[in-house]
Write a protein that binds this DNA or RNA. Sequence first.
DNA 1: TGAATACTAAACATAATGGTTAAGTATCGA
DNA 2: TCGATACTTAACCATTATGTTTAGTATTCA
Lengths: 111, 111
Amino acid sequence: MLHLDDEDTLDRTFAALAHPARRAILARLARGEIASVTALAEPFDISLVAVSRHVKVLENAGLVSRKKEGRSRRCRYEPAGVARAKDWLETHQQYWSAQLEALSRYLKDGE
Amino acid sequence: MLHLDDEDTLDRTFAALAHPARRAILARLARGEIASVTALAEPFDISLVAVSRHVKVLENAGLVSRKKEGRSRRCRYEPAGVARAKDWLETHQQYWSAQLEALSRYLKDGE
DNA sequence: TGAATACTAAACATAATGGTTAAGTATCGA
DNA sequence: TCGATACTTAACCATTATGTTTAGTATTCA
């Protein structure tokens, strides 16, 4: 189950998650809502242009997809992106857990 | 916001994870190794100064801790940071799953 | 057709990131 | 005490990120 995940993709994924507005947008879409850019922008004090670019960052990270529908865009959650980030974290968390006992022993001896 | 988790902390955590060198350092420490900055820098082509700052970014995000030990620093993995990031991802993944299930029921029942 | 809507793109200012080298601090070892 | 070691800090530079405003494109509606 060792998938050679593209480092750049992981970079873009974590970087996309590192901004509160983008996390808020993603959280909203993750609830199942399929929203336009204008609708997504509504809670924010920043310009629509800025929100549009936040959505683009999420899209480039594979966390969100955008489909043109008339003159608006239907933005939707893409579960694969979040799964990718979670997988990376879990891999290393699990590895750590497996080694926890050995580490614990080491710390006792070393300190 | 709704949850207690500091948005800034989450920003720093995800931002810290968004660089391949920092992920590599974190992955190494997550295996249980407690390494000096010099040891951590060894596999990289960048300067020790650059690595030292990467470790600092990880430290500021709560992913790693550094303890002075003689003239070197013992860097160690801090599980809380990774857990924080994973929790955020899981929360929103679960939201989506819950909604999906509800939608599925709705479609089956026709109401 | 012409105005309004829902964006996206371009151009710009400013701040943050990530690298460098040079200099400073603390500790160890002879 | 003096030099080497293991860093950190400072100063600098290039690039990227995030916001702005203005302009452009596509679509809908009167």
